[in-house]
Amino acid sequence: MTDNKMNKADFYTSIVLITLSIGIIVISLRMPSMVSKNESMWSNPGVVPIFIGFALLMLSGSMFVRAIMHGVLRPSDNQHTEGPASDITPISDTQKKLPVPMKRMLITTAICIGYAFLLGTLWFPLVTFLFVFVFISVFEFDSAKKVLQQWKTFLWAAVIGIGTSAAVTIVFQYLFLVNLP
């Protein structure tokens, strides 16, 4: 991330954190007092969260002030100084597309989340096989080739999927006596 982008990210993060810390303080202040039960007021469950909330508020407040001092609110004149390309050249289709690393990251996250949330709804070995198979197939798929030409890729993905699913199930369920989801 460039300094400018990081400053902007810090600015927005600090707003989120300030909101969070105020939330922590408010919720903590509403926690019950134990004085009525003949306990010291210092044993109240909200005491430590209030302290944490205040500390977080101070830290995120400092970040907020720092971002402003570094010019996050000043109108950016980058678009006029970066060169003619950014002003004149229309955004091409390739520029509109997500960069490859970002795409790979989002696909990874989506497949993994899908697997984590399918657990418990389907039979564990099946869902594990599907996850491994889909993961490998998606990342090894070559869009320049025909699907049928890539049968070896899918076969390998299936073999690794079956192997992983069987090994994990046997080792954890029968060797380590873990109840699988």
Binding site: T108, C112, Y115, A116, L119, T128, F131, V132, F135, I136, F139, E140, W156, I160, T164, V168, F172, V178, L180, P181
Partner: peptide, 16 residues
Amino acid sequence: QKLMPIVFTLCVIGSF
């Protein structure tokens, strides 16, 4: 891409 799904499976089991 062959290693990471296996690792994630272990992460899931490890957490569970």
